[in-house]
């Protein structure tokens, strides 16, 4: 039976079928890769670069980072605190959703892009306390138009590489930083 199938596959028709199948597989794979690599749609195409260039500190909008696990996303009222003082806020097409949010009392539905999987319990606070800056992980936000352009892939190898480096020569710290239970529970 298998012999027969192989024989057919070697016939001209079979080869065409093989090529089509291969193309299908490759294109589906490419689509899959593209799908997971493409940035999500955001309510506002938020330019981090412009805010950072205007000396807005990261912690101004993401104050949770040095308090606890999540850095948090700013509420529209926080945006409005500054933006209501800018005349461009009233006219900018980009800021339409912000005006709507304030007018209608509906939150902006942001989609976080710097994510770790559900089974990782990441905590911002100790990282900041250890002297890391936001740029160490989130890239040079001041020069990136969008947060998702951060070239750093956040995977476990990368986490551990830094943990190893920081704890080298300190057995107590090594125990803590290389422990599964520090991040996975």
């Amino acid at each position: 039976m298998i012999q027969k199938v192989f024989k057919w596959l070697m016939s001209p028709l079979g080869r065409v079928a093989l090529v089509i199948a291969a193309l299908a597989i490759v294109s589906v794979a490419m689509w899959g890769i593209a799908y997971v690599q493409s940035p999500p749609a955001q309510p506002i195409d938020f330019p981090h670069q412009r805010h950072a260039a205007n000396q807005v500190q990261c912690l101004y909008c993401h104050p949770g980072a040095n308090r606890g696990a999540s850095s948090g996303l700013p509420t529209p009222s926080k945006c409005w605190g500054c933006h209501q003082q800018l005349s461009i806020t009233q006219t900018s097409k980009l800021l339409g959703p912000l005006r709507d949010a304030i007018a209608n009392g509906t939150p902006l539905q942001w989609v976080p892009v710097a994510q770790v999987p559900d089974f990782v319990q990441y905590n911002h606070r100790p990282h900041l306390a250890a002297g890391l800056s936001c740029e160490n992980c989130h890239g040079d936000v001041a020069s990136l138009l969008h947060a998702y352009e951060n070239p750093q892939v956040m995977n476990m190898g990368w986490c551990l590489a830094c943990h190893r480096e920081k704890s080298a020569g300190n057995p107590e710290l090594e125990k803590k930083l290389l422990d599964c239970a520090t991040c996975h529970y």
Binding site: K175, L178, D179, C180, A181, T182, H184
Partner: peptide, 10 residues
């Protein structure tokens, strides 16, 4: 877990 001395499930 070496740091917490408990048995962890990853």
């Amino acid at each position: 877990s070496q740091s917490e001395q408990v048995n962890v499930q990853v």
